[in-house]
């Protein structure tokens, strides 16, 4: 029986592969700053579309016709879903999901995983919803490019929110230099 010693519980089917990065001293700080910047950028991209729509001009070359489409509440829904998912993901204690022994009962771990799943599902739903809005509301109706921009802004908001969540997740899971020096 010369099986290699595994450092995880072999009875568990679903493992969370937490990436154990060992980066420089300031990587965590940089990651958190970057995540905040991406978060603000995402929301400003969509708010730009909303403000632009509120001050919308008529299409280029036809000064008499009113703008054919506006940003309505339908456009806000994917962004709100993504934001809720972002909040849910970042409010979970990361040690709970890891499921280490002696960290509360197993039901707490189970609940944390459920909430994590809900968070990711909300974010993915936001992305899918934004693509849906882009296709159904803007692309299929063949508006000029000036108005299709609203849909693209919506999609890029969801994508940037996801990127921000990923950066924040990685930044908070990096083991710091101090531990690294200890184990060396």
């Amino acid at each position: 029986m010369s099986l290699p010693r595994s450092n995880y519980d072999p009875r568990r089917v679903c493992l969370n592969p937490f990436p154990e990065f060992t980066l420089g001293k300031h990587r965590r700080t940089i990651g958190v700053y970057l995540a905040g910047a991406l978060f603000a950028l995402a929301n400003w991209t969509f708010l730009d579309a909303a403000i632009l729509s509120a001050h919308a001009h008529s299409p280029w070359g036809q000064p008499d016709t009113p703008p054919p489409v506006h940003v309505t509440f339908v456009d806000w829904i994917p962004g709100i879903c993504s934001l809720l998912g972002y909040l849910v993901i970042n409010m979970i204690d990361k040690d709970r999901i890891r499921g280490e022994e002696g960290f509360g009962d197993s039901r707490a771990v189970w609940r944390a995983r459920l909430f994590l799943f809900i968070g990711f599902a909300l974010m993915a739903g936001g992305l899918a919803g934004s693509v849906t809005v882009l296709v159904l509301k803007y692309v299929l109706n063949e508006y000029p490019e000036q108005f299709t921009y609203y849909g693209y802004a919506n999609v890029s908001q969801s994508v940037a929110l996801m990127l921000s969540a990923i950066v924040l997740w990685i930044a908070q899971n990096t083991s710091n230099e101090y531990e690294y020096n200890l184990t060396l």
């Binding site: 958190v32 995540a35 905040g36 603000a40 950028l41 400003w44 730009d48």
Partner: peptide, 15 residues
Amino acid sequence: GRFITSMIVVTGFAL
């Protein structure tokens, strides 16, 4: 705090 700071800075440039 860092997250909010970076959010506000990007807001200042984006607005």
